[in-house]
Amino acid sequence: MSTSKQQPLLEVRNLRVEFPTRRGSLIAVDGVSMEIAPGEVLGVVGESGAGKSMTGNAVIGLLPSPGRVESGEILLEGERIDNLPYEQMRKIRGKRIGAIFQDPLTSLNPLYTVGEQLVETIQTHLDLSEKGAKDRAVDLLEEVGIPSARERIDHYPHQFSGGMRQRVVIALALCAEPRLIIADEPTTALDVSIQAQIITLIKKLCREHGTAVMLVTHDMGVIAETADRVAVMYAGRIAEIGPVAEVVKNANHPYTHGLMGSIPKVGHEVERLTQIDGSMPRLTEIPTGCAFNPRCTEKGPRCMVERPILEPVENSFVACWKFDPEGTGA
């Protein structure tokens, strides 16, 4: 999809997010580039602290303080949005880019009914009367699968279960029919039995509405089931980005390879799951060269000094010198 000639819906170019601290800047996102086509689901996967959530936050312009976009560009339908003043960016949030957060139990304001929160959001973005907005709110609740929506609309968040609350959050994200939704760990806080329902719902709604999704998660299973393409992040950088089937079945980057090997598979007799030794470096201790080099089993001298760039390998792009004509120098 990304290779087609049509203009991408979202384009992130060389994004660098920094957190200035007293002891120098921490680089949370370092030179990340990705594209999302209209209607496409891009999974962004990585360990905690890999920069995946920060990339999502940067796109909706809500980086936690004191984080800031240091360099790079974010384009929505060809228009730069990373340098917009707050008020203009606010009008894009909710209207053109929706968001779903991790914990549905804390995403809703406990003092307002779900109807009040929906109507408020709808009226912020669409020119509808109170009555029209309420009708739309009921339709949205029905669409996300809340039974007897007309009655439930006057209920408070605490009267809904976790899964139902996440459905309300999804309805809130869809209020103004945004073309892109940033879903940050939408299933992590839910029971396993509910996770599949929510994923199915997000998939179904996005297909029906033609909404593109940036699905941020650490759960490879969710990505494999939902995404069209996947970006694997490591230490603030993209290690590999490509079609989901290829990355899952045929990982190129040594990190992705290890990551896939660590997922247990049903029906396969495996003595031990593979495991990547060590842990992801802290933001203050990212090594020179390839950030993965301390844990890589296939590293060469070049990996220790020169940072790999994303290069095409089959249908994917991989940041590893292994695939460079000049090799790792080993």
Binding site: I60, L62, R90, K91, I92, R93, G94, K95, G98, A99, F101, T106, S107, L108, N109, P110, E120, T121, T124, H125, V169, L172, A173, C175, A176
Partner: peptide, 10 residues
């Protein structure tokens, strides 16, 4: 919920 309210563009 405040972060989410901002993300909804309020």
């Amino acid at each position: 919920y405040i972060k989410f309210a901002r993300a909804r563009g309020l």
